[in-house]
Design a protein around this nucleic acid. Structure first.
Lengths: 137, 137
DNA sequence: TACAAGTTTGAAACGATTACAAAATTATAA
DNA sequence: TTATAATTTTGTAATCGTTTCAAACTTGTA
């Protein structure tokens, strides 16, 4: 069984053609794409794909913890197929999102007052990347 | 000089009536409000206030580092007048955002490959709050 | 093979945010 | 003060990411 298909099944998701394609895309591309990027890229090989399907599928994958939904960018949600803990950096000039290592002792069990269950953690940095700094954009 | 006015001046922002009102609002309310909440609440005392002004002002304050713009919620940006380092927790049921202490050694100078300048750090938790857990919502 | 359940699709609606130009306010110079 | 310029606010319209929804399609099951 394909890796993407296996991943879906492992998370209790029925592997339809579209779901596998989207999961596969996220496993291959570590670019933290948006819905629209995924939609347009997959359209080349799946001409009947609907944007709504991409939305539905990513919502499904996310709710089953098969992908991460990054809110680092206020403009649109970015998706990440890498589930191991790591942080993100977004350049405010070019918009690129880069993976950063996450110190394992950082978000150590806080569970403070008023919080009953922590389901997701995101450590988000933003600023200017090397390239944009050179081209002072 | 008022505290809010002083804060604006300290960050190189001309203190107009609207700007002071919005800054004051964020200093009083630690509820991480959205643009719309601020707009509606201030409308009571400033009937001619425009939603656009709230957008413009928060963008201005944010770009001058006078307030924090939280991207913890993919639906809309929340604003925070408290600039000392702390993390946030958002309940996925009620949408409430709660302040959490941030271990000071957490986001210790990463500056990894490709990153030239880090301007902002956000440590975002999400899950279910106590209250929602009780009412199993 | 037939029916039910699940999935995909596309159009329309929604809602947060942005663009823009006119009106109002504030600062500056004579 | 008065005139003029610069800044700020305002409201409307446009934009665009996302959601809703019902019909069409596909897959699973009896």
């Amino acid at each position: 069984m394909e890796k993407a298909t296996q991943h879906l099944v492992n998370h209790g998701i029925r592997p339809s053609v579209q779901r596998v394609a989207i999961m596969e895309y996220l496993m291959k591309h570590h670019t933290h794409p948006t819905v629209d990027t995924i939609y347009h890229d997959l359209l080349a090989t799946m001409p009947t794909l609907s944007r709504t399907t991409v939305y539905n599928t990513l919502e499904l994958l996310h709710s089953h913890n098969a992908v991460q939904a990054l809110t680092i960018d206020s403009r649109n949600v970015h998706y990440d197929g890498m589930m191991s803990p790591h942080a993100h950096f977004m350049c405010r000039c070019c918009g690129r999102i880069i993976d950063l290592p996450m110190h394992s002792d950082l978000p150590a069990n806080p569970l403070p007052e008023h919080v009953s269950r922590v389901e997701q953690i995101q450590l988000n940095y933003s600023g200017v990347c090397d390239e944009c700094n050179k081209n002072n954009c």
